[in-house]
């Protein structure tokens, strides 16, 4: 009798938590931002998980392929978002400036081509060839990397710094203070952060905001 009662209680508890959980799942999409209690994705100081994604040259790329790197400029971007397109030349310039200093660019396209047909892997290859990308342009096919990092839009930058063999998030946000127009830039947030890391200093501006295209999944 006692056992039966216990079992009933247990079943009830499981049921209640299941209902609560499914309610959470159902509401999380709408509630997430209007009521942003839970913060998803990485914060400054978090260790970034490794990646193993397909590059436009048909090889797989991971951080371990760069044993000499001091860190990484990880940029979630895509083929057609006007803000991403306006940033292309700047991303190429960042790679030219910072790869020799130990911070190569790793570009990742998180968009689902079923939702955004301009972001197929074939069109990524085309974009990389047309623009002469000097950095990997990776396809987040499983859609797991952008979610893990917490990228919300394109372009969205995560600056990682290798510390004790871990990639620590040091800066999240925009490349600079004028996504629309490179010639109107007054502050280069990302570059400033990298130079501070190179000087062994703490990054002063750790997070910035910019308008971007929501990630299409």
């Amino acid at each position: 009798m006692k056992l039966k009662k216990l079992l009933t209680l247990e079943v009830a508890a499981v049921l209640v938590s299941f209902i609560a959980f499914s309610a959470f799942i159902n509401s999380s999409h709408n509630e997430e931002v209007s009521n942003p209690v839970s913060v998803d994705g990485y914060s400054i100081g978090d260790e970034a998980a490794g990646i193993n994604l397909l590059n436009v040259d048909d090889t797989m790329v991971s951080y371990e392929d760069y044993p000499d790197a001091l860190g990484f400029i990880v940029i979630f971007t895509c083929n057609t978002c006007p803000y991403a397109v306006a940033s292309e030349d700047r991303i190429i310039a960042l790679d030219a400036e910072f790869k020799p200093k130990g911070f190569p660019v790793i570009a990742i396209n998180p968009n689902d081509p079923a939702v955004q047909p301009a972001d197929t892997f074939a069109k990524m290859k085309q974009k990389a060839a047309d623009k002469g990308f000097t950095f990997p342009y990776l396809y987040d096919e499983s859609k797991s990397v952008y979610a893990q990092y917490g990228a919300k839009k394109t372009p969205h930058v995560y600056l990682l710094h290798k510390e004790n063999n871990k990639n620590i998030v040091k800066y999240i946000g925009a490349i600079d203070d004028n996504v629309r127009n490179a010639s109107g830039v007054k502050e280069r947030f990302l570059s400033n952060a990298i130079y501070e890391l190179l000087d062994g200093k703490e990054v002063t501006v750790k997070e910035t905001k910019a308008i971007g295209c929501s990630i299409k999944v």
Partner: peptide, 20 residues
Amino acid sequence: DPDANTWIPKVNPKWSGAIP
């Protein structure tokens, strides 16, 4: 207003800058 880093948080501090 190109300086989005200044005005986005004024709309709402939680806004990532993605639209809509």
